[in-house]
Write a protein that binds this DNA or RNA. Structure first.
Lengths: 235, 235
DNA sequence: CGCAACATTGAGGGCCCTCAAGAGGTGTGG
DNA sequence: CCACACCTCTTGAGGGCCCTCAATGTTGCG
């Protein structure tokens, strides 16, 4: 199914139908704070291929992606949406827009069936007024987001395609002892997030492969020389 | 003076020596909240050419740029620092790093004499625990930062040099009735922030000028056709 | 099997970077 | 006052990276 369905509002909403993974989103939380968020959150299911929101539309609710895969970017009618950011739950799908410009800055698409949790911003604000620890967790979450974006900005400004791919591979393997990745997205979406075309990504993969730094087989990438990758990444 | 001085700690520190422009940084504040921030802030003066911090170093304090011009980017020993971000006070010079990674992600340089205000993060945290409205202001400030970065990321990924310049010009004129800009930074620094070389910026300026969209005379740029610029910017 | 979507590979070209030279402006010292 | 150094910006020539377009191979599904 490659058809993109428009954003509609026929979703089944329930309160706390699923257990919310707040610690993964905000760090360690008191059970009190978690319960307060649970009370605020509205769970929502979205089928694959549905637009979640469009840029320019007002953003009233913070949205946590509980489970599933979603993409953010600019949709262009003929070609579809090329993702600038792909999210895998649990992660914040919409965090800053309702708090800052109160307007979505990009289009978002469900790349698979999604489980979401909406936090209306005004009630959340009221809640945070009484729960300073929770407010601090949101501050930290936003700060981490800024840090990630700074790194991406630097990469786009100063690194070539090969360095960006190497950097991405290093980041993907980071924290795992096993140096084998299974790509969770289409290669064209990975390319899009790295600011290059699928063709260029393919060529870069082959280049790294021919130099013996990685071994590519379909959607499985084995990292053979992490140090050399780190060097190419420019860090 | 084009020599870059290393970051040292010989600054003269005072408490609230200057009136702090908190509203410009955080939005409207109760006089109580402002006074609390004043009590926490340590004013600091830095001469031109001084490094403010270096990437990788621990970030313990949030830093407000009260007055002056500072640049953030990656310094490379032979060439100096090419700014990815140039700040004019009042603005947040360091906001996210101490709250997220607790580590500076870039180098920073005083491009003129600076007036800074340091907010140590631990005392600030303690303060925000008692001042939820203030905490909310920081949340909003961080969210706005995320929004700005998203726009820059999108520009670098999908716009060519001409569109990025047009977009920047539109953003600079935004909010002024007078369509005359005085460039506050060297053109090479503007180019650097836009992710292009000074040569390319010069050619793009000439191109826009020849097409009658702007009129350039040194550091003065008159915007003649804002609508066409907006069109080029891709919005 | 036939179709559709994706990935790969190749050819060609455009955007923009690099390198180099020249112009204009400013501060310093003779 | 002028020469000179030094900085920035500008302009031109050349080339490399990566995008675009097109064809082919691969995979999954009805």
């Amino acid at each position: 199914m490659n058809v993109i369905a428009p954003a509609t509002d026929d979703a089944l909403r329930t309160r706390a139908a699923v257990r919310m993974p707040w610690p993964a989103l905000l760090g360690p939380l008191s059970s009190d704070d978690a319960a307060a968020l649970d009370a605020l959150a509205v769970a929502r299911h979205v089928p694959e291929g549905r637009m979640l929101f469009e840029r320019g539309r007002p953003a009233h609710t913070i949205v946590a992606l509980i489970d599933g895969q979603a993409a953010c970017g600019w949709a262009q009618p003929p070609r579809g949406l090329s993702p600038e950011r792909v999210l895998h739950g649990p992660a914040w799908l919409v965090l800053a827009a309702p708090l800052g410009d109160r307007q979505h800055a990009c289009d978002a698409l469900a790349q698979g069936p999604l489980q979401l949790a909406d936090l209306p911003v005004e009630p959340l604000r009221a809640l945070l007024m009484n729960r300073p620890v929770l407010a601090w967790r949101f501050i930290e979450a936003l700060a981490r987001e800024v840090g990630r974006q700074e790194a991406r900005l630097h990469g786009l400004m100063h690194k070539d395609a090969g360095a960006r791919l190497a950097s991405w591979l290093v980041a993907q393997t980071d924290g795992r002892t096993q140096a084998v990745l299974r790509l969770a997205e289409r290669k064209r979406d990975i390319a899009s997030q790295l600011g290059m075309t699928p063709e260029t990504l393919s060529r870069m993969m082959r280049s790294l492969s021919e130099r013996g730094l990685i071994d590519v087989s379909g959607y499985t990438v084995r990292v053979l020389d992490p140090a050399a990758l780190q060097g190419l990444a420019g860090g």
